[in-house]
C-alpha cells in the first residue's frame, strides 16, 4: 500500500471525524460528492453526514463561524480552497482568533487548512505561502508539514490543540509525495527534524523546500560535501535549539523558504542564529526565498521565481567556499 500526502490529510480528517464528535469540516466544496477542490475531503460528507459542510464563498464568515463554534466547544476544521484566499479571512484569524485567549482567557481551538505554495501554471492568486504572515501575529500556531507522516500526525495534533492552528499543506506535495503507510507515532509540534545529517553546512527549510534541500544535499554529496537538512515542521513555534545545535555542528547556515523575501521565516531563523549562535558561525548566514514580485503564471517564469535545487545548490556552494 502506498499513501500520498493528500491522502494522509484526508485520512487524518476521517480519523478525526470518527474519533471526535466535536469535529466538523467547513469550506468551499468540501461537502456533497465533490470533496473539495483537491479532494482532501473526498467521501467524508457521505461517511459523516451533516459534519462536512459546504460554505458560501465567504472566507471571513467561514472562519468567524469556526471561532464561534470553537468557543461553544466544537473543534472545527476550515478548509480554505487556496491559502491565497485566507487573506479575506485575515481579520477573523489575526484579530479575532489570535487575540481571543489573551483577551478573554477562553481558547479558540480551530484548525485552518491552507493549501499552500506554488504549482505550475497557478499564477499570482493560487500559489501563495502565507506562513510568515500568520507566524508574525501572536496567538496562532503555524504548521508546515513536509512529509506524508507529518501531514497526517500534525493535522491530528492541530485539532487536539486548544489554540488556533494554521496548517499549511503544500499543494506540490499532494501527489508527489508518497509513504508506504500511515504513521503510528508522531513527533510533537515545536520539534524540528533532522531530515539528513551532515557536517559542512546546515540548510534550514520547511514544507516543499525541504525536498529541494534534500536534492541539493544529494547533489553536493557527490562533490564531497555533507549537508545537514533541518525540517522545521512548524514555523511557530520555531525550534531554535535544533537549528542552533545543527549550526554548532556545521558552522554554516542557509535558510530556504518559498514565500516572499521581505521578513518572514528565513529572516527569523537567521536573526535568532545571529543573536544566539553568532560564535558558532564560520561564515555569514544566508537565505533564499522567492523573488519579490507576485508569483508568475508561466512555468518558465514560475520555476525561476521560487528557489529550486539548482539555485539552492549554487548558493550552498558559495557558502561552502567561504
Amino acid at each position: 500500500m502506498s499513501i500520498t500526502y493528500l491522502e494522509a490529510i484526508r485520512e487524518a480528517q476521517a480519523k478525526l471525524l470518527r474519533d471526535d464528535k466535536r469535529v466538523f469540516i467547513y469550506g468551499q466544496d468540501v461537502g456533497g460528492a465533490f470533496g473539495g477542490a483537491f479532494k482532501a475531503t473526498k467521501g467524508l460528507a457521505k461517511e459523516f453526514p451533516g459534519r462536512v459542510l459546504n460554505a458560501p464563498i465567504s472566507e471571513d464568515a467561514m472562519v468567524g463561524t469556526a471561532i464561534g463554534a470553537a468557543i461553544e466547544g466544537m473543534r472545527p476544521i476550515v478548509e480554505m480552497q487556496f491559502a491565497d484566499f485566507s487573506s479575506i479571512a485575515l481579520n477573523q484569524i489575526l484579530n479575532n482568533a489570535g487575540t481571543h485567549y489573551w483577551r478573554t482567557n477562553v481558547p479558540v481551538p480551530i484548525t485552518i487548512r491552507l493549501p499552500s505554495g506554488g504549482t505550475k501554471g497557478s499564477g499570482p492568486f493560487h500559489s501563495q505561502s502565507m506562513e510568515s504572515i500568520y507566524a508574525h501575529y501572536p496567538g496562532l500556531i503555524v504548521m508546515t508539514p513536509a512529509t506524508v507522516e507529518d501531514a497526517y500526525t500534525m493535522l491530528i495534533e492541530a485539532v487536539a490543540i486548544d489554540d488556533p492552528v494554521v496548517y499549511c499543506e503544500h499543494k506540490y506535495l499532494y501527489y508527489h509525495l508518497k509513504a508506504d503507510q500511515l504513521p503510528t507515532e508522531s513527533v510533537p509540534t515545536g520539534t524540528a527534524r533532522i531530515a539528513r545529517e551532515g557536517r559542512d553546512l546546515t540548510i534550514v527549510s520547511y514544507s516543499a523546500m525541504v525536498h529541494e534541500a534534500l536534492a541539493v544535499a544529494e547533489q553536493l554529496a557527490s562533490e564531497g560535501f555533507e549537508i545537514e537538512v533541518v525540517d522545521l515542521r512548524s514555523v511557530k513555534p520555531l525550534d531554535t535549539n535544533t537549528v542552533l545545535a545543527s549550526v554548532a555542528r556545521t558552522g554554516r547556515l542557509l535558510c530556504v523558504g518559498e514565500s516572499f523575501p521581505w521578513g518572514g521565516v528565513t529572516a527569523e531563523v537567521i536573526a535568532r542564529v545571529g543573536a544566539e549562535g553568532f560564535h558558532l558561525l564560520d561564515a555569514a548566514p544566508q537565505r533564499l526565498n522567492a523573488k519579490d514580485t507576485p508569483i508568475p503564471y508561466h512555468p518558465n517564469l514560475w520555476s525561476a521565481h521560487r528557489p529550486n535545487a539548482n539555485v539552492i545548490a549554487r548558493k550552498a556552494r558559495a557558502l561552502l567556499r567561504e
Partner: peptide
Amino acid sequence: QLAMVSHLGAMISVTVGALMAKRFK
C-alpha cells in the same frame, strides 16, 4: 456574552458559529 473586536461586522459570523455548535450538540 461574546467579546467584540473593533472590526465591525466580525461578530455576526461568530454568533452564527456558536449557534451551529449548539445545534451540533
